[in-house]
Design a protein around this nucleic acid. Sequence first.
DNA 1: ATTAGCACTCGGACCCCACGAGTGCCAGAC
DNA 2: GTCTGGCACTCGTGGGGTCCGAGTGCTAAT
Lengths: 338, 338
Amino acid sequence: MSEDRRRAVLHAIVEGYVSTSEPVGSKALADSHRLGVSSATIRNDMAILEEEGLIAQPHTSAGRIPTDAGYRSFVDHLAASALQDPHKRAIHTFLSDAVDLNDVVERSVRLLSQLTRQVAVVQYPSLRESAVRRVELVRIGTDRTLVVVVSADARVEQSTVALGIEPGDEEFERVARELNEASVGLTPAPLAQSLERWVTRPGQVIWASAVADAVVAAAKGGTVRRVVFAGTSNLARAGTDFESDAIGPILEALEEQVVLLRLLHEMTGEGQDIAVRIGAETRTEALARTSIVAAGYGPVGESTSLLGALGPTRMDYPGTMAAVRAVARYLSRVVENE
Amino acid sequence: MSEDRRRAVLHAIVEGYVSTSEPVGSKALADSHRLGVSSATIRNDMAILEEEGLIAQPHTSAGRIPTDAGYRSFVDHLAASALQDPHKRAIHTFLSDAVDLNDVVERSVRLLSQLTRQVAVVQYPSLRESAVRRVELVRIGTDRTLVVVVSADARVEQSTVALGIEPGDEEFERVARELNEASVGLTPAPLAQSLERWVTRPGQVIWASAVADAVVAAAKGGTVRRVVFAGTSNLARAGTDFESDAIGPILEALEEQVVLLRLLHEMTGEGQDIAVRIGAETRTEALARTSIVAAGYGPVGESTSLLGALGPTRMDYPGTMAAVRAVARYLSRVVENE
DNA sequence: ATTAGCACTCGGACCCCACGAGTGCCAGAC
DNA sequence: GTCTGGCACTCGTGGGGTCCGAGTGCTAAT
């Protein structure tokens, strides 16, 4: 059956093009990849692959390069490959002595960018719902206050609130105390109810609701779901065939966190443990020549946050996927324990 | 005296080259810049400027471009120019509704990158010494704890500490209470003494010193002095004459925060309100073709933190300096009030 | 179904040359 | 002494033409 060989040819083309970044011809394939057939046969297969839209030739007298669809077929028929041992060790030593959540995320993103030699992206984890441990009000100026919420799972959220009026010190202290009494030990849902009651108490100060809203928001953990990235220099590395005018839009898209977030979010709706978007599949003008490999991570069962790697369409998919998978797995474990 | 005119010629060359990114010739200068002299005279001046090492020609039959020394002379003889009004308004609207310190820094760095159309860099502010308002211990796992220090000036620092043993709940609560008693209301210096006494109390638990160290460190505000940047896409913008292989090293240098920190630090040791490093003056291989404009900011009198803009040597120095100065000033005021 | 052979295509490298921007210098004017 | 007009010279850029060879598609043979 030539079906299998055609797939082998496609694989060989992808691998060849990825490693050399030059179109690969039928002769080169016949020589190096010991497929057991002659170049003429390969040419026939190539003609079919081209008809199917999986490969293309930049110009008549050149070899073939994979199309987006070609890469797609390649990754779809890829068996999960394991990460190399030295890399595994790197993950361990790199992440094991992180001091807090920020640090974990920061280290992860750097690590991932080094392993993949691509741009790495890590979304801050959304920890699961947990009870409020303490609420702290700190006065700023005369009519504003900082609200700090410490949750039982060691998260600290803060935000500032404008009070509208200038409460006396005594009133301020009293409200802070009452607020704690109404909040401590509660998870978001009951917390919201409890504070609702607290705010509507007869004689309650008018700035209570502003503060209560801030506490609820902080407890939901949800301020903004930030994304950090690292390894942008890999975009300009020799071997990535980006022109300098192609790099600009990519960097813009990265800084435009909204775009990334939307994209990552779309990608995990799909159920698999790891998702790949190739070229135009990103449906983003600036990223038309890039691919993204993303995986979810988080406590077992609910992988609620995302991380991934972004690089040229012509990337090492197996290696990148292995690295992303490995880091996601490790990070899940870390988040679990925190 | 031709001295003045030579300087005018240099200025004109810098301005011309900055705006067109093409070497400027004597004829073009005579025509456009109405210096009142003919191209021949300008040629003579150019010959002298070239001897002085302020300008150079890429090849024999091309115009002149400024050397690093030329730019240096240009900025040294620059009168401080004011920022355009619309930009001033932009600063105000952009920064006025930031919610917390993180947000302020984040917004500042974006703003600065937009104003200058360069890569903007902002170092996190080091707030002045202030008293500890509250210390919170939150248990993580069995033998680790999160230490949260809230200071009177609305800063929140956190770090995790390994305890070495697994204290009982009751012991844990007691230590937390005592720790607060020994800490609240103190500024770093007396705090250190107080905690020293506390740790050496007879019968004190052995993990007290680890926690105390963390509190002192947090109170000093000093964890890590992070640097954030934005606008990296400006490096690849059309008009910056960076090749894509020049961009890589620059991005690397940016991610390598150490390099930036050292550089920024060097720059403010010099006393002026604003410092400029041009090309090779950065003494950093990767940044040989870039310039940095930096200013300190912080509470009046002590501008302890830094921000700046980084771009190609061929940058708009007056505009960039005005923007950096303006943002630094505004940020100082914000930090002052927080 | 595979292979050997062959004519054909076309992009890239190379060379050559003309063009013109820009220079340096000199002799003359103010 | 300073500036200017003029002129010969330099050299990088870009257009046009040619050659080369990698790689192809097709056909006939196995």
